[in-house]
Design a protein around this nucleic acid. Structure first.
Lengths: 201, 201
DNA sequence: CCATTAACCAACCACTCGGTCGGTAAATCA
DNA sequence: TGATTTACCGACCGAGTGGTTGGTTAATGG
């Protein structure tokens, strides 16, 4: 199946990335040294630098995987020909799935502070995603599907604040992501209150 | 009014703490050196150590201010003799006010990773607060004020995930915190959807 | 005027950091 | 077999880190 690679067998870049990201998330990016990453793989620091060109490259690769996933989700929902309200709910559900699937990468993304050029690039892509959501909320309000008494940008931020909080407590072994996506969408759109008439019965 | 202090006038510990926390939040705690903190106050590193005993002490003081605020809010709402649902909503509103008022301190708190003993102590107080919220949600469900089809711990996490997201985008000059607290409570309890019957007409 | 109090600084220290260099060990291919 | 490819390591480097030491400067109080 997998075509045997030439040369001495060992770790590849993907294994290195996964190990690094796991450490970055538990101890923090700056608090994790390249020595720590090497140790966790059972190799030396110089060997680590054989697989990767810098610490920052590891960060860049990780946040790109997260951002690519989110923008794919956005593109797929945008392609659907329904109401803006339905697309917004779809985007929430799909985003939850992306967060669950690429949990470690998204976790790192959401903690980026913008200290380097690479981090600032990631931040700017994040802001682009936020604008996209805010626009969708505004459209949903215009068509009457979403309450119009809140600023769309604020609503978008609170909505995805809820979604993004997943990285703080969700663990892959804890339940089906699709079920969780349903819970999040229900809470976001119908609210916590129980003494209300449900549209579908 | 303020009783003049003896000795050579200059910075006091509070000024140092505020400057430090501001830098910790913009660059990250580990990425900020004590030299940076000193520079931002226009003093040298050794003078900085005259006001404070260690970098970790600055962290501890900051997160304690945040946690004290949150637990005060919890104690005040717990003292009220109404329904659990009303108390939960009050806690959400009050928490938003605490976040807005002590924004920098809470921001630092929510980014603590648990690398040192002091950080682990902060994390354990955070978890205590989370349990408190989850219990309140469970009580509200039992009395029928909150939908019972979601796990109380999950609902509590999502609810405060939304509240805590404030630190990512709220800025003190942006609107009245009390209005924001109302928006958050409305979105959390009534949801985004607009095609629903409102209990109060 | 002088003791006291407090803010301040230059120089220093042991240590860790991200990253480099030159060379070796183990696999595949011809 | 021998060339090629790839993984690997020990030793090193300059820059910075949190923190210390010993001493100076400016204010207050008696």
């Amino acid at each position: 199946m997998t075509p045997r690679r030439r040369g001495r067998p060992g770790h590849d870049q993907d294994a290195v990335l996964n190990a690094a990201v796991r450490l970055f998330n538990t101890r923090g990016y700056d608090a994790t040294s390249m020595f720590d990453v090497a140790m966790s793989l059972g190799i030396t620091k110089s060997t680590l630098y054989h697989h990767v060109i810098s610490k920052e490259q590891l960060l860049t690769m990780a946040v790109d995987r997260a951002l690519d996933g989110l923008f794919e989700a956005a593109a797929e929902t945008a392609a659907q020909a329904t109401t803006a309200t339905a697309r917004l709910e779809q985007l929430v559900r799909r985003s939850v799935l992306v967060l669950a699937e690429r949990l470690e990468f998204v976790t790192l993304l959401l903690r980026v502070r913008g200290n380097t050029e690479a981090e600032q690039h990631a931040l700017s892509r994040r802001r682009e995603f936020d604008r996209l959501v805010a626009d969708l909320v505004a459209q949903a309000q215009a068509e009457g599907g979403v309450r119009a008494d809140v600023d769309p940008a604020t609503a978008a931020r609170l909505l995805f604040g809820m979604v993004n909080s997943l990285i703080e407590w969700y663990r892959p072994d804890r339940g089906d992501p699709a079920v969780l996506a349903g819970t999040v969408a229900a809470l976001a759109f119908e609210g916590l209150r129980s003494d209300r008439t449900h549209p579908n019965g």
